[in-house]
Design a binder for these strands. Structure first.
Length: 271
DNA sequence: AGTGCGGCCTGTCCGC
DNA sequence: TGCGGACAGGCCGCAC
């Protein structure tokens, strides 16, 4: 579900309902997410006012004077704003209710997501402190990635999905950006020239921005809810298209597993 | 330090 | 129709 564009869309969607709102109550229905929700979290955040909301990689941050709530959606998580009286559904594990009666509700079937509390700056939290630059900022540029890649034997697709190199490039967009850049996903990261990294950096930014503009539309949701291929799905050049023909050259798109993740590419266009 | 893999979970889909 | 197994958009934590 949530790649960076969807997390960004979620942030934009929930911010108007939560900014400057005061937390009245937290309901934990199932604390067993990726890491257990700490017992003291409800008391920690109660009566706190949400002063700002941010995204860092795929982490959402709700900042208060006392500390920050860190939310990660994992593989299957989603957040919604609902009236506090709305009955919970299966897999609705966590609610944050404001004094205005709004409820931020976490739904996460696979429970790979996380809800954490930290009293310090969230950027000093163990999970965030070593994250690489945001892909949509100027810190993510070709000299930087080029330098980080020197000496790496790892293939480029795994390399750009490494959150310590750049945060927020998920499995779909890694394949898509490499297609746009014309780089073969199995090529060793340390053996790619600066000029090609410049193309790749621009491709990553381009594909993420395009997806954000479409509201972070994602595969499964779309095909499930209305049965039609989604907007974004129509723009995918390689992801999930094994056996189909390349939009650019007509060759057959190939599928390959790299680091246990599905990888798609055009053997003709990507070298 | 870099790399590769196991594991956390449920839901869905495919082949028998 | 039922059932087992593979697979799914993430990513930490560990062994080497």
């Amino acid at each position: 579900m949530p790649e960076l564009p969807e997390v960004e869309t979620t942030l934009r969607g929930i911010t108007p309902y939560l900014l400057q709102q005061t937390v009245k109550q937290v309901i934990i229905r199932n604390k067993n997410l990726r890491w257990p929700i700490t017992r003291s979290l409800a008391a920690d955040i109660k009566n706190q006012t949400i002063q700002s909301l941010q995204r860092r990689g795929k982490y959402l941050l709700l900042n208060t004077e006392a500390g920050s709530l860190i939310i990660h959606l994992g593989m299957s998580g989603s957040l919604r704003i609902l009236p506090a009286s709305t009955a919970p559904q299966k897999h609705d594990h966590f609610d944050l209710i404001t004094t205005q009666g709004q409820c931020l509700r976490l739904h996460d079937p696979r429970r790979f997501g996380a809800v954490l509390w930290t009293r310090k700056s969230p950027f000093e939290h163990k999970l965030l402190k070593d994250l690489g630059p945001e892909p949509l900022t100027d810190e993510f540029n070709s000299p930087y990635v080029f330098n980080r890649s020197r000496g790496r034997k790892q293939n480029i697709k795994v390399f750009i999905m490494d959150s310590k190199i750049v945060t927020g490039v998920g499995n779909i967009y890694a394949s898509e950006a490499l297609f746009i850049a014309g780089i073969h996903p199995a090529r060793a990261a340390g053996r790619i020239a600066l000029a090609r990294y410049e193309t790749l950096v621009q491709s990553v930014k381009e594909v993420l921005l395009a997806a954000i503009q479409q509201g972070g539309t994602t595969l499964r949701d779309f095909t499930q809810s209305d049965g039609k291929p989604g907007y974004f799905k129509q723009q995918l050049n390689v992801y999930g298209r094994a056996g189909e023909s390349c939009h650019r050259c007509g060759s057959e798109i190939k599928h390959r597993v790299l680091a246990q993740r599905a990888t798609y590419f055009c053997p003709q266009c990507q070298k």
